Amino acid sequence: MAYQQKFDKIDRKILEILQKSAKITNAQLSKEIGLSPAPTLERVKKLEQSGIIKSYHAKLDTEKIGLGVSTFLIINLKGHNKETYGAFMEHINKIDEVVECHLITGSGEFLLKVITQDIASYQTLMLDHISAIPEVDNMQSMVVLSSLKDSKVMPIP
């Protein structure tokens, strides 16, 4: 069972605000949570040091940077053991277009999120890279037609 951090009301508010706007200044953050800047910064640093805040990222508009096709792939492997999973992951970690990889239950072992420029580049990626991974037995593709919700904001329990 994973360790669950206990949060007070101020920590929750800090996490909610930083998830929506990581570029907020400490002065503005302190004003929004009702603390002075020094204790606000101390709390943020504590959340970072404990690993609760893992990193800060810029969310890019995929279409504006030329990445117009998003797909999900369900992958079935030829074997169901640690060595097969490890070898598969070695290959997947080298493919930049695979932006997420999840070990799942159900109809496959892995769920991948893949982002490419267009259908032609997706086809090339599938034929030359993903289906060429020796551990892959079969796969099912689902092309995203449109994204109705794409939030990276986590609900704070």
Rank of each mutant, 00 (worst) to 15 (best):
Y85L: 07
I53V: 05
D11N: 07
P37F: 02
L73M: 10
L18F: 04
E83K: 07
H80W: 00
Q117F: 13
A58C: 01
A58T: 08
L18C: 08
E83F: 07
I53M: 02
K94F: 02
K113N: 10
T40F: 00
I53Y: 03
E100T: 04
L125Q: 14
I74K: 04
S36Y: 12
S30T: 12
Q123W: 10
Q28R: 07
Q28H: 06
V69S: 05
S36I: 05
L47P: 07
T40E: 03
E83Y: 11
Y85V: 01
G34W: 06
D118I: 13
N81T: 04
L29W: 05
I74C: 01
I33N: 12
N93L: 09
M89G: 05
A38L: 11
H57T: 05
S21Q: 14
S50I: 04
Y56W: 03
I75K: 06
G51W: 09
A87K: 11
K13E: 14
L125S: 14
V98L: 03
M126P: 10
Y122S: 11
I75S: 01
K31A: 11
A22G: 14
T124S: 15
G108R: 08
I104K: 10
L35P: 08
T116D: 14
S30C: 09
K23V: 05
I17W: 14
L127I: 15
K20L: 11
Q49D: 14
E97D: 13
K113V: 15
L112Y: 13
H80A: 08
G68A: 02
G79L: 01
L103P: 11
E97K: 08
I74A: 02
K20S: 11
T25V: 00
K46N: 10
Q19W: 07
N93S: 11
S21I: 04
L125V: 12
E90C: 05
I115D: 09
E32T: 00
I119G: 14
N93W: 01
K113S: 13
F110R: 09
A38G: 09
A27P: 00
S21K: 15
A58E: 08
Q19Y: 06
G34P: 03
E83P: 01
V69Q: 06
C101R: 01
E48W: 09
L29H: 08
H91L: 04
T105S: 02
I75T: 00
I17D: 03
N76L: 02
K54A: 06
L103D: 09
F72T: 12
E16A: 13
E63D: 07
L29Y: 06
S36T: 13
T25W: 03
V98R: 07
V98T: 11
R12K: 14
L111A: 11
T116N: 14
V99K: 10
L41H: 06
